[in-house]
Computed example of a mutant assay.
Amino acid sequence: MVRNVHTRRFPGHRDDLVRLLDTLGTPADELWPVADWPPTRLDGPRVPGTPAGHGPIRYVLEEAEPDRLRFRFTAPAGVHGHHEFTVDGDALTHVLTASLHGWARLTWPLVFRPLHDALLEQLLDRAERALTGRVAQPARWSSYVRFLRGLAEIRSRRTRTEATLRA
Rank of each mutant, 00 (worst) to 15 (best):
M1K: 05
V2K: 06
N4Q: 14
T7H: 08
R8E: 13
F10H: 12
G12C: 10
G12I: 09
G12D: 10
H13A: 14
H13R: 11
R14T: 13
L17M: 07
V18H: 08
R19V: 08
L20I: 07
L24I: 14
L24A: 02
L24F: 13
P27L: 06
L31A: 10
A35V: 09
W37C: 03
P38N: 12
P39G: 05
P39R: 13
L42E: 05
G44K: 10
G44S: 10
G44F: 09
P45R: 12
R46K: 11
V47R: 15
P48I: 06
P51G: 04
P51L: 06
A52P: 01
A52H: 07
G55V: 01
G55R: 09
I57A: 08
R58E: 12
E62S: 11
E63K: 03
E65R: 13
P66G: 06
P66S: 03
D67G: 01
R70Q: 05
R70S: 05
R70E: 00
F73W: 02
T74H: 09
P76N: 05
A77S: 13
A77C: 05
V79I: 15
H83Y: 11
E84T: 02
F85S: 01
V87W: 04
D88F: 07
D90M: 05
D90C: 12
A91P: 01
H94R: 00
V95L: 11
A98N: 06
H101L: 14
H101P: 04
G102T: 05
A104E: 08
A104W: 03
A104I: 07
T107N: 07
T107H: 07
T107K: 05
L115W: 01
A118M: 08
L119M: 08
E121Y: 07
Q122F: 12
L123V: 00
L124T: 03
D125V: 03
A127C: 08
E128A: 11
E128K: 04
G133K: 07
V135T: 12
A136T: 15
A136N: 03
P138M: 08
A139M: 04
S143L: 15
V145K: 01
L148K: 07
E153A: 15
R155S: 15
R158L: 15
